[in-house]
Each structure stands twice: as C-alpha cells, then as structure tokens.
Simulated assay, not measured.
Amino acid sequence: MTKQRPYLVGITGGIGSGKSTVAKIFAILGIPIYYADDRAKWLMSHDSELKKAIIEKFGRESYSESGELNRSYLAAHVFADDDKVKTINSLVHPAVKRDFESWAAAQNSPYVLKEAALLFETGSYQELDKVINVSAPLKIRINRILLRDPHRDEKQINDIINKQLPDEEKNSKADYVIKNADNKLLIPQVLAIHQELLSLAQN
C-alpha cells in the first residue's frame, strides 16, 4: 500500500505579523514545519542545478571561489532591481518546490506546514491544499519590528511592508486567518485550525 502524502498547508503573514511564533505553536503540536525562506538560501548555496542557472543569468561573481553565494554582489546587482528579482525568483521557486515536495513526502504526519513570507506574491499558494494567514494591525507590526530589529528605522520597515500584499488581500485569499493582536489569544485559534486540518487530512 503506497504511503499517502500529507496534506500541504501554507502559513504566511506580513513582516511583524508573528507568523514565526504561530509556526512554533504548530511545531509544539508535533506538526513538521518547512521554512521555505531559509531553505531557499540553503539551496542557492548547495543545489548544483540552481547554482548553474544563477551563474548563467548573473555571472560567475554570484559565487565566491569556494562556491559560497556572494550575497553582497547579489544585493548590489540583483536585489536592487525588480526585474532581476523576478528572474532570480523564477529560478529559485522551482528548486524550492521540488525540495518541499520531497521533504513533505518523507514526513510521517497527517499534514505539514510550509512557512513562507511571500506565498501569495509568488503564486506558490496554489500548490497547497490550504493556507493560513497571520494578520496583525499595522501599528503593532511596526512596533514589533522596531523592538526586534533595532537596526531598522520606520521608513525601511514601511518600504518592506509596501512590497508585500496588503493584509486585507492576504486575508481574502487565505483559508484561515489567525489574528495576532494584543487582545487575541493565539493558542485557541491555532488549536481550532489544527483540529480542523487533522480532520480534513484524515478524510
């Protein structure tokens, strides 16, 4: 009898929304978490097919002589240009998709979570069974980031927020919305979604 693949669930949220905190609660419940943004960085340094494609598009300088990703070069020559960002995303996205699928297939769990900042922006939410958006008021998000990242100022934070889809749009696209505001308890919201996902995955 072939092993059934787990139910694939995405978890996203704008910067400062608290999606990492919510993901940790799911992890405590025993749900495997795939951190897509961290994994993308790892693949850019270790996936030979992806490295070859990046070098072809952006030049040998994209990597050091020892084969490490040249982050300062990419920051200056790629990430400052929106068209080049789209190009590099078009290379990284398929590699992450392949990596996530093989990781998910190896998990022994009714469902797994894929945590990523730009699930809706990249269109990768369409490859998942359900998506959770972690939502928080803008003022709270900005205050959280200022406390967490003292090297950033409010203008930098607003620039990042403006590059992400508005919360209202993410909420309308998501199957579940977790409200992470000061007057909302996270754990009961997570437990309710967890129970529903277990039920869906088992059916």
Rank of each mutant, 00 (worst) to 15 (best):
L138C: 14
D182M: 07
V134A: 00
Q195C: 12
E115A: 10
L113N: 01
A117C: 01
K163H: 15
G10R: 02
K155Y: 03
L200Q: 13
D99F: 00
V78S: 12
A136P: 08
L74F: 02
L113W: 00
A27C: 04
Y125H: 14
V85G: 04
P137H: 09
I178P: 13
L43V: 07
R141V: 03
Q164R: 08
I55Y: 11
S172L: 07
K97V: 12
Q156F: 05
T2F: 11
I157R: 00
A105E: 11
Q202V: 04
R60L: 10
A117E: 00
R5Y: 03
K41S: 11
I25L: 15
K41Y: 12
L186C: 05
V134R: 00
E115K: 08
A136T: 05
G10N: 02
R5D: 10
L138K: 15
R71P: 07
F26N: 06
K19W: 01
E56N: 14
A105M: 11
G10Q: 02
H77A: 04
Y176I: 06
E169S: 04
I132P: 08
A36E: 11
A104Q: 01
I193C: 03
A36P: 12
S45V: 00
R39W: 07
A53W: 04
L8D: 03
Y63Q: 09
I145K: 00
G67Y: 09
T12R: 01
V9C: 14
K86L: 09
Q4I: 12
E49T: 14
F100W: 02
G10L: 05
E65Q: 07
E154P: 06
H194R: 09
V22D: 06
K130S: 11
L69Q: 06
D129Y: 06
Y7D: 03
L118G: 12
S199H: 14
R152P: 02
A104I: 06
P188D: 04
A117Q: 07
N158I: 13
L43K: 12
L185G: 04
Y35E: 15
D99Q: 04
E101K: 10
Q164Y: 09
V131S: 07
L138I: 13
I28H: 12
D38T: 12
N133W: 06
A80Q: 14
D167K: 13
D182N: 10
H151W: 02
A174H: 04
A106P: 04
N143D: 15
Q107Y: 02
L186F: 05
L138R: 15
A106N: 11
P94D: 09
L146H: 05
L138H: 09
G30L: 12
A201V: 03
G123D: 12
G59W: 01
A106L: 06
K184S: 06
P6C: 09
E127S: 13
I178R: 08
I88A: 02
S124E: 13
K114V: 09
L197I: 03
P94K: 05
V78I: 14
D83W: 00
G30A: 13
Y73T: 06
A76M: 02
V134Q: 02
D153Q: 13
L118I: 15
S109A: 08
E196T: 13
V134E: 05
Y63R: 06
S72E: 15
K170S: 08
I33D: 08
K97P: 02
